[in-house]
Simulated scan of single mutants.
Amino acid sequence: MLYDGGFLTRLEDGVRGALSRWDIAPTTELKLLTISENATFRASNTGTGGDLVFRVHRPEYHTRREIESELAWIDALRAEGGILTPRPIPLRDGALIADIDDAGTTRHVVAFEFLPGKEPDAGDDLVGWFEKLGAIHAGLHAQARAWTRPEGFTRKVWNFQSMLGDTPLWGDWRAGLGLTAEGRATLEKTAQLLERELADIGTDGDSFGLVHADLRLANLLVDGDKLALIDFDDCGFSWFLYDFAAAISFIEHEPYVPALMNAWIAGYRTRLPLTDAQAAHLPVFIMLRRMLLTAWIASHAETPTAQAMGIPYTDGTIALAEAFLSARA
C-alpha cells in the first residue's frame, strides 16, 4: 500500500520543492494525474511555454542508469522522426533526472512536455486506431533492431522468469486476488504450457528485442488523427509480439479483440514482415500478459487500476486460461 494519501502529499511537496531546478516557480499549480507504477503530476502555467508532467518513480524499481537508458531511447526515437512522444525536459543544469528526498528514501523525478489528447475508449474506432498502432509498433521494432544503443544502456528483461517464473518483477501470480486452489491449479498448468511454448518461440533477434512493453490504451493519446505514445517506463527487452498483448491490457476478454488483432497485424505488415506462423503466437502473449497483470494487481493493490479490477479480474484470468488450455488440448 505504497500510495496512501499522506504519501502522495509528501511526493507533491517533494516535487514542488524541486521545481526551481527547472526554473519553475514553487507556487505553480500541481495536480495528481495518475498512480500506477509511479506517480505523475501535471504542472500548469509553468512559464516554460506549456504544461509539464512530472513522473516520480516508485522506489527500488528502476535504477538511475535504467531511467537514463529509457530517456536515451525516447530521444533517439524523437530524433529519427515518425514517433510522436513527449520530450524529456532537462533541468537548469542540463540533467534529465532530479532526486528528491522522501523521508530518507531517494526518489527519482523526470519531467516531460505535456501533450494534448485523450485515451481512446471502447466508443472510439479502436479497430482503426489498432491498425495505426500496429504500424507504430513495427516502426519501434525496426528502429530498435537498427539502433546502436549507447554504452551502458540498461533495461529490464521481460521473459518468462521475470514475468511468471522465479524472479517476477511484478509479484507472484499465485498471490492473485481471490485465487482459489482450483483456480491456482488451472493457472499453474497454464504457466507451464506458456513456458514450453515461449521456449519454442525462442529469443533470437527476429523475435526478441527492445520494446515499449506497455502501450495499453491508457498510454495512448488521441488528438484528431494523431496517435501519441507516452510512458516508456516499462520499456525493456522482450518478444516483439508481446507489444500487442500489452496493447489490449485489461480488455483481453472483450469480443472485439480478434478484430483488434487483425487490424494490428495489417498495420504491422505495412512496415515489417509478419508471417502467419508468427502471428499465430499472439494468443500465447495475450495469456502471458493477462497472468502478469493478475500478479501486478495483487502487488499494487493501492492503485486505482488494481482497485477497479480486483477479484473479478482474477476470475476472468482463470476463464481465459481454461479457454487457452482447451484450444491447445
Rank of each mutant, 00 (worst) to 15 (best):
H300Y: 11
S207D: 09
T203D: 05
P283N: 15
W22T: 02
G17A: 13
R290V: 01
V127Y: 12
G139H: 14
R174E: 09
A181Y: 02
L210N: 03
G139Q: 15
T167C: 07
E188Q: 12
F237H: 03
F153E: 07
I230H: 07
A301W: 10
K226P: 00
D13Q: 11
S20V: 12
L221A: 13
L292I: 11
K189F: 01
A308C: 04
R78T: 04
L71N: 01
P255I: 06
E197V: 13
L288Y: 10
P255W: 01
A76G: 05
A181H: 12
R65W: 01
R87C: 12
V15L: 10
G183W: 14
Q192Y: 00
M287F: 05
H212R: 05
D101Q: 10
A142W: 01
F41K: 07
I297D: 14
I67C: 10
D166A: 15
A181M: 13
V109P: 00
T167R: 15
T190I: 06
P120Y: 10
W158A: 03
G50I: 05
L84P: 03
A280W: 02
V15W: 02
T190E: 05
A213C: 09
R328F: 11
D124G: 13
M1N: 06
T190D: 02
D4P: 00
V53M: 08
P88G: 01
R155C: 08
F153K: 05
G202A: 04
